[in-house]
Nucleic acid binder design. Structure first.
Lengths: 161, 161
DNA sequence: TATTTAGGTCAGCCATATTGACTTAATTAT
DNA sequence: ATAATTAAGTCAATATGGCTGACCTAAATA
């Protein structure tokens, strides 16, 4: 089975090459989150706050339930982070048409923070991608997309519909 | 400045497209770590244990200091995780030539766990990459590498020398 | 009218990280 | 030979971001 696997696996997909990708994913993700983390620290927020702000900013009038299904955390985990964001007026809650639900939007303050944080990551990515061809970038996105679970793919498609 | 930026930015690098990449990085990294996390949970370990096992397995006779510089965490953080791994005989310590240092290697038990965890990720990546061309994969790796900080690049180069 | 759903809340727990202070033993520099 | 630096370890306190379980309210739906 191992031998068969080796026979069927192209050289550029051997274990060593794949392990390099594992390492690059680790390093790149860590370095990618470092910038916003530093900014967040100054205002006593963490990465979890950024994620909430990010997705609320992306998708106006998100409900709590939808947000939870994107983040895949429990409502108790979200609660602490979200109530801080609401108390400090980064996020505004309103009642939905279904009056059991609540809709989330960013306040102006929230939009400003969102922009400040995401701009760091956007600039970083743009600076990297400028060195590559449109085809490379297209391939990169397609591979990343394929790395995502079916369930998360649905979420991604949903918020980019 | 914003206008100038827009003029100079190719369409496929506009903010919307880059935000998609931000989201794909979030979803893919989360889904990528999910498999090992589940296995680790059963033996009361966490992701931090996997990282230590991974890099010790990669680079035999790593010292504590070198490991810390790869992981970029404090020795106090490493301490808890590492002492568990040593106590439970996944990792074996020995004194280095410089007798202040310690060398880390995986025991057989450690190698087995390393393999079990990494195989999940290796298979996942291989299954994804099989759908792509060698060129796409080469581009993917190069872009990921460019996403990494200079300092981390050095670490990556070091462990893959 | 009964059940389900969306959201909230309290309490306790765990994992992973941090800072700061201090120790020991070995190596290196003066 | 002594002083300074380095590698590693340890203790204590703190923060963040998760989790489970139990329980509540109000609104929508069956």
């Amino acid at each position: 089975m191992a031998d068969l696997n080796k026979l069927l696996t192209p050289l550029f997909l051997n274990e060593g090459e794949i392990r390099k990708i594992i390492e690059l994913l680790f390093f790149s993700y860590r370095d990618f989150t470092e910038g916003p983390d530093k900014v967040l620290e100054k205002i006593n927020f963490g990465r979890a706050h950024h994620r909430v702000i990010y997705f609320v900013g992306k998708q106006n009038n998100l409900t709590i339930k939808e947000l939870l299904s994107i983040l895949k955390i429990t409502k108790q985990s979200l609660s602490r982070v979200l109530s801080q964001l609401v108390n400090e007026k980064y996020i505004i809650l309103s009642v939905g048409e279904d009056k059991r639900t609540k809709k989330l939007i960013l306040s102006k303050k929230g939009q400003e923070l969102e922009k400040r944080l995401s701009e760091i990551q956007i600039k970083k990515i743009r600076n990297v991608l400028l060195k590559f061809s449109e085809m490379d970038i297209y391939g990169f996105k397609k591979i990343l997309y394929e790395m995502v679970d079916d369930e998360s793919k649905e979420k991604f498609d949903e918020i980019n519909r």
